[in-house]
């Protein structure tokens, strides 16, 4: 299973009022293409989707905030996980699509394959962490996504996925337009 299939699996599970922050490159294009709009689609600021999602979760404590990030972004922003783990916002969920590569820039290897995600993240103080290899095990993904969305605490789901060579078009909205459309949710 590829990362975009994990994103598409969320289509039927989301209620429609979730706030989603997606990492720059392929992941934000997939979230734009397959999930309800508008959301926070990052075009740059690599490494910062967790920080942005955390700020959003603090600002909107009654909404569910989901960060969807690739492994390259996740690792660059790893220290934000320590910040988030310290504060434990109960409305923040983090979904990592780990294909072990910088897929947007041509599939260069990341160092992700060397890491034990559950131990690493639980060692930061986050209790609800799950890891699933959806290349081998496609059966349990839906259940894990349902658990992630239903959890009443800060939670992380790490998914090992195949690299996706299919590229989506760039997001057609200009960044200020992304911001303005997203802010309309709170009018």
């Amino acid at each position: 299973m590829k990362g975009d299939e994990v994103v598409r699996s969320l289509q039927d599970l989301l209620k429609g009022d979730e706030l989603i922050v997606s990492s720059n490159g392929n992941v934000s294009r997939q979230v734009f293409a397959y999930l309800h709009q508008p959301q926070v689609y990052l075009r740059g600021s690599m490494g910062l989707p967790m920080a942005v999602g955390f700020g959003l979760a603090l600002s909107q404590p009654n909404k569910q905030v989901i960060v969807i990030t690739g492994d390259g972004n996740f690792l660059m922003g790893l220290s934000s996980m320590a910040t988030i783990a310290f504060h434990k916002p109960q409305n923040l969920k983090i979904l990592v699509l780990d294909n072990g590569s910088y897929a947007t820039t041509g599939g260069q290897q990341t160092v992700s394959s060397n890491l034990a995600y559950e131990e690493m993240i639980s060692g930061m103080g986050i209790k609800n962490v799950q890891s699933v290899d959806v290349m081998k095990d496609t059966e349990t993904l839906n259940g894990k996504l349902i658990d992630l969305l239903a959890a009443k605490e800060l939670s992380v789901l790490h998914t090992l996925v195949e690299e996706d060579i299919h590229k989506l078009e760039n997001i057609p909205w200009h960044p200020p337009e992304i911001k303005d459309k997203f802010l309309e949710k709170f009018d």
Binding site: M50, V52, G53, G55, A57, L58, S59
Partner: peptide, 9 residues
């Protein structure tokens, strides 16, 4: 990043 996310909320 946190400050920008806070504004987006």
């Amino acid at each position: 990043g946190i400050s920008c996310g806070y504004y987006l909320g």
